[in-house]
Design a protein around this nucleic acid. Structure first.
Length: 122
DNA sequence: CAAATGACAAAAT
DNA sequence: AATTTTGCCATTT
């Protein structure tokens, strides 16, 4: 794993329960504003399911990643909904309400919740 | 070893 | 305003 991936995971783990972040936002946090694409690459290449809540990372417009995502995008949607994330419509997270603001505060707990259990159902 | 590739988003046409 | 190109990391071919 490269330094890049390590930083990605570090930030993704900070996303609070009930909030989401975006690929671009994570990219900015680790100091590579133009590397949103590679954030996705890092998560795919080295996703450590239990430690890193990668389901909380979505598109800037609130859409979920197509194609991949650990089990299907409907499962991701289910996980998010279970954490209290609200949706503007079928395919879009309500970004206004649920986008994590890293500058503001940790807005809750350090994302070290037992989302293993949440994943258990289904 | 060089070249292609991938969970995106912003800049340039 | 809409479409195309660029960004530039690490792994795979």
């Amino acid at each position: 794993m490269g330094d890049f991936s390590a930083k990605v995971f570090e930030q993704v783990r900070r996303i609070p329960r009930g909030k989401v972040s975006t690929y671009g936002q994570i990219a900015r946090l680790i100091g590579s504003p133009r590397s949103a694409r590679y954030v996705g690459w890092a998560l795919r290449n080295n996703s450590e399911p239990v430690k890193t809540p990668c389901h909380r990372v979505v598109f800037k417009d609130g859409r979920l990643a197509q194609g991949y995502a650990f089990g299907g995008e409907d499962k991701q949607r289910c996980l998010l909904a279970g954490e209290g994330v609200t949706f503007a419509d079928e395919t879009h997270v309500d970004m206004e309400a649920c986008l994590w603001d890293p500058e503001r505060d940790e807005q809750g707990r350090p994302a070290d919740i037992d989302w293993e259990r949440e994943m258990a159902d289904e």
